[in-house]
Simulated assay, not measured.
Amino acid sequence: MVKLVGKEVGKLGYGLMGLTWRADPPSQEQAFEAMRTALSLGANAWNGGELYGRPERNSLHLLHEYFTKYPGDADKIVLSIKGGVVPGELRPDSSKANVSRSIDECLKVLDGKKFLDLFECARLDGKTPLEETIGTIAEYVKAGKVGGISLSEVGAQTIRKAHAIHPISAVEVEFSLFSTDILTNGVADTCAELGIPVVAYSPLGRGFLAGLYKSPSDIPQGSFLKFLPRFQPDVFDENLKLVKQVEELAAKKGSTPGQVALGWVLAHSGKKGWPEMLPIPGATTVDRITENMKPAQLSEEDMAALSEILQKFPVQGARYHAEGMKHAEA
């Protein structure tokens, strides 16, 4: 069982990004139904962001509305929020002034409806001393306003340095069959050594591994996926080959490819020297959430087959475009 800030959470968490950060976000009614479904099925670690939407409408506003209607759910959920960017932009600012502004704004919008269990800077700006950034969040932890500190998209050296400044409660990084870097770049090893759980975002390869996209034209207009290297027409079909192999394995197991992808992440959790892993798939419909909450149980033979697939069909393209990778250490 994974623990975040000393609290037990389900084997899968729930990513809130798609509920407020998309060209055509779902209605409040649909969002609430999705959130209640996730919680009812055991996903009590929720992950949102001040940057997931507009300054006037993001995860915090949705959460405030949710906990106003369902106050009894507040203590059941471990909430992690990403911030630390310039309001209205995706530009990180890890300075004391902006990190304080970000946390204060999150607390203001939540308005006491829900405790802020974890706060993390979505990215570090690369110029503010880490001591200043972590030290600022630590002040809120010591004051009892925030439960703990999480890190996002950082490398092994930063994890180690930050943990020495103040204990780190979680590290959020991309991890899936489409993004296996943490197994070889020292991030997973460092987290295992320090006893820090990994929060695996995009465990379904942003929907690619769930079989949502069979051609570039399947990607909705306005979706930021259209700008990501792995979804570009020149590499799309190559990456689809990996998905088709996963689909074949899933069919043999009576599972969906998404369930196999989630099972693969969970198969690493706490095994063979790896840290505890918490996948946080995001979904906006009851059917998709219900599917995600039934990850496939993978045997050693299944894992070996998936390793062979990864070797034969390496993912083409970077995780983000060049500008986006500037602040992604891992």
Rank of each mutant, 00 (worst) to 15 (best):
G84L: 09
L79F: 03
N98G: 10
Y66E: 01
S40R: 10
I81H: 03
V99W: 02
E105V: 01
D104Y: 01
I77E: 00
A38I: 14
E50M: 04
P87K: 14
S95F: 05
L41Y: 03
G42V: 07
G72W: 09
K69C: 05
R36W: 04
K76M: 07
K69L: 12
L51S: 12
N98D: 11
K82Q: 08
L62S: 03
V86G: 13
V99N: 03
G72S: 14
R36F: 07
S100V: 13
H61S: 10
N47D: 15
I81E: 04
C106Y: 00
R101T: 08
G49P: 00
L39F: 10
G84E: 12
A43C: 12
N47F: 03
N47E: 12
N58K: 12
L107R: 00
L39I: 11
K96T: 13
S80E: 14
K82N: 05
A97D: 14
L62V: 08
A38L: 10
N44M: 10
D73M: 08
V85K: 02
D93V: 01
R57C: 07
R57Q: 10
P71R: 09
N44I: 06
D73S: 05
G84M: 06
Y52A: 11
L62M: 14
V86D: 09
S94T: 04
A43T: 14
C106F: 00
L39P: 05
L41G: 08
I103M: 06
T68L: 07
A45H: 02
N58F: 08
L79W: 01
A74R: 08
I77S: 00
L51R: 11
K96S: 11
E65T: 06
L51A: 14
P55Y: 11
S40H: 14
P71W: 00
V99S: 03
G84A: 11
S94H: 01
L90F: 13
S100G: 08
G49K: 00
E50T: 05
G72T: 06
Y70A: 09
A43F: 11
V86H: 10
R36A: 14
N47V: 09
E50C: 05
C106I: 03
N44Y: 09
G84K: 08
L51I: 15
V78P: 09
D75H: 13
D104P: 03
N44P: 04
S59T: 07
G72Y: 12
I77F: 00
A38N: 08
E65H: 06
R91Q: 15
L62W: 08
L62K: 01
K69M: 09
V86P: 04
D75K: 15
F67C: 02
G49L: 00
P92K: 13
L90S: 13
S94Q: 03
D104F: 00
Y66P: 00
V86R: 12
S95L: 06
N47K: 00
E89L: 13
P92V: 11
D73T: 04
G53L: 02
A74G: 01
L62Q: 03
R101L: 15
P55W: 09
E50Q: 11
L90E: 13
D93P: 07
L90I: 13
L79E: 03
G84P: 12
G48T: 07
G72N: 15
T37L: 06
